[in-house]
Simulated assay, not measured.
Amino acid sequence: MPEIVDWDLAALTAARLARPGPSVTFSEAAGVVSELRRLTEEAAEHVAAFTEMPPVVEAAPVQVVDRGDWAKANIAGLRKVTGPLASRMQAVQANPVLRTVGPKVTGAQAGTVLAYMSGKVLGQYEVFSGGVGTLLLVAPNIVEVERKLNADPRDFRMWVCLHEVTHRTQFTAVPWMREHFFAEVNAFIDASELDPEAVADRVRRAVSTLSDVVNDPQSRSNLLDIVQTPAQREIIDRLTALMTLVEGHAEYVMDGVGPEVVPTVAEIRSAFNARRASANPVEKLVRRLLGVEAKLRQYAEGRKFVAAIVDEVGMAGFNKIWTSPETLPLTSELTDPHAWVTRVHGRPAATAE
């Protein structure tokens, strides 16, 4: 079956364009890998105790990867996701508009994006892989950032592990979460617009969006918005609420586990946030175009949402959020956590002790 993206070309492009990692000796690299694996196991115990969410299915061991392997893992997942869309597009592949933006062009574009992201991602719970998903830690990026922050290596690595293990916990302690996420992604694909004129119109709007982002530093537009049909925007609203929750929950956990686990957590958080905010103008532009800025906002907004609910109803009360898709937050509730408490608990809850 023909694919809409030449994923082999995407992998080659990502490998060619990815920046080299920091300079380390073989012994140092082996030490980093060993420590990340060990800290992941330690983090799992801390996360389960803090969140009161013991996993109900066994997860695969962590994979400590380099930038190229991270890109390959994501390409494998994206290949699965785009398969159904490729099937639907066979009927319109003969159209000259779609032929122009062919698999090799989109493969090169995807590889370019993945090359950029491969140098930024510290870790990821890759949900599209087999089984219940795969926890990836990108060793060269972790080492590079800890050096730039002048952070204690062990503390920074544990801090990162806490965040990523929380994501693994969310998908292994909440039995319906993975299938619900897949269902939303599949619904998004099913709502794709294949009409050639509509595709051409979105290309024109992409050019307009690019100009808007370049000229307006406050713009929240990004190129990912262009692919959305009206039906897809509704799905994206639900997915955004879900991702804001899971990212915010991970941020809350990684800081909340406490100084006894990460003694320099306050210094790390301060330095890390300052680094995010101090990116050069070109870096900020690229992040906005790719929607990375929106993800960074999810961290902050989601953390506030989780903290407010835990403060009001305690961790057990917060964990009702994982009961079913109906108890997930609405987009409007992300900025009004008490509205979620009232809706899910059925009454205004007393302040947790």
Rank of each mutant, 00 (worst) to 15 (best):
V81A: 13
P54L: 06
G133T: 10
T13W: 06
D66E: 14
F305K: 10
P281A: 11
P54V: 04
S324D: 10
V97S: 06
N186R: 15
D6W: 04
A43W: 07
K284T: 15
L136A: 07
R16C: 07
V138K: 03
V265M: 08
G77D: 11
M1C: 08
D195M: 04
A266M: 10
H345W: 14
L245R: 06
T244N: 03
S221H: 15
L334R: 04
P2L: 10
S192T: 12
G123H: 07
V253Y: 12
D155P: 11
V145A: 07
F156D: 02
P230I: 08
N95A: 08
T82H: 11
T240R: 13
I226F: 00
I236K: 14
P230A: 09
S87V: 11
L330Y: 12
W159Q: 01
E326R: 14
T166D: 01
A71F: 09
T244P: 01
P217Y: 14
V24L: 15
V101F: 14
M315D: 04
I142F: 07
P325G: 13
T323F: 07
V143F: 05
M254I: 05
N74G: 09
D66V: 04
G317N: 03
G123S: 10
V214W: 11
V253R: 03
R269I: 06
S270C: 03
L334H: 00
V32D: 09
K295T: 11
G133M: 06
A91V: 14
A316N: 06
F156S: 06
V5Q: 10
V132L: 02
L114G: 14
V127K: 04
E41T: 15
R220G: 12
P348N: 13
T240G: 06
E58F: 03
H338K: 12
P153Q: 09
A183R: 13
G130C: 03
A198V: 11
I4Y: 00
E234S: 08
L162P: 05
G302Y: 02
P196A: 04
R67G: 12
D6I: 05
L245V: 07
V174S: 05
E45Y: 00
